[in-house]
Amino acid sequence: MLGVTGQKRGRFLLYRDEKREPLMVIRDLKKYYPVRGSTIGKKKPIIHAVDGVDFEIYEGETLGIVGESGCGKSTIGRQIVALEKPTSGHVLYQGESLSDMSAGRLRKIRTHLQMVFQDSTSSLNPRKQIYDILAAPILYHKIVERDMLDEEINRLLDLVGLPKSMKYRYPHEFSGGQRQRIGIAKALSLRPRLVVCDEPVSALDVSVQAQILNLLKQLQDELKVTYVFIAHGLGAVRYVSNRIAIMYLGRIVEIADTQELFDDPVHPYTQALFDASPLPAPKLRGRQRIILKGEIPSSINPPKGCRFHTRCPYAIESCRVDDPKLIPVKPGSSHLAACPVVLAQRKN
């Protein structure tokens, strides 16, 4: 079912969980964007937003994708729900490539793949009441009959913890947290199998963040929906995810089960990212940690070799040349990391 995509080149002989069938398989996914409004006559610079990533999403899990701004995590999210077409590579949903689907088939599949956006203000139409915002997709995709619509909308609002009486209000009458609840109800209204949550709590206050994170977890228990949770806040990602992928400049540098990743981070970037997250414990201020030097390089001209070598405290000569592949940390392990230097050190 993984099909022909590149197996011949031997590139994708990655670890696969034999017991579980992946809901979605991402193979050598690349997405480049031309820079807008650049100089005439010259070749347009290209942003390498996502530059060759492979991973699977299993049914019922939450896969967290973490990285700093510009690392391509949101771009991956948009490819997964078919909002954009990849430059090359494949997003296979139940074995079918999204980019090869007919328009009609894709329209049907879109109901399975939904998204919750960061900015709940701009993703809700300000001129429409919540009732209409929720009703439009339900009617379009014929999820329920028209005479059942009222009941369905009440059910959705109840699901996300909003009182039914609020359904004739406009988006601006809600607080940020409530608007995000509406965004979640909208995503769930089509009974999706996979929901991509793109920074769903970043714009919210801490006290409200916890409410939304708990709501997402509770909904997953009830509805058995699969999540891809994209965020830059490690604490939040760890709280909701079963597995986490760490991204840097368009590539996945490490992917592992949540517990495994936090117990034993392998890639130097993962370690630095963990060290940089502030801990709510003043006693630990003086702890040893990696402080990265320099800025994140531009994704227009990403560094050759390992993309992290310009900031990596462990970089050696070969890191400037060799492009590291994601390999199992131990034979047969589902914990993959793209740093031959650290892995070689561990063997000794």
């Binding site: 801490v206 916890a210 409410q211 994170l213 806040g233 604490g235 939040a236 760890r238 936090f262 801990l279």
Partner: peptide, 18 residues
């Protein structure tokens, strides 16, 4: 303080929300 997820928390601890 309890509503902030920390990377070294007990993974099974439920986040308290206000």
């Amino acid at each position: 303080l309890e509503s902030v997820p920390c990377i070294y928390d007990d993974p099974n601890k439920k986040l308290t929300s206000i």
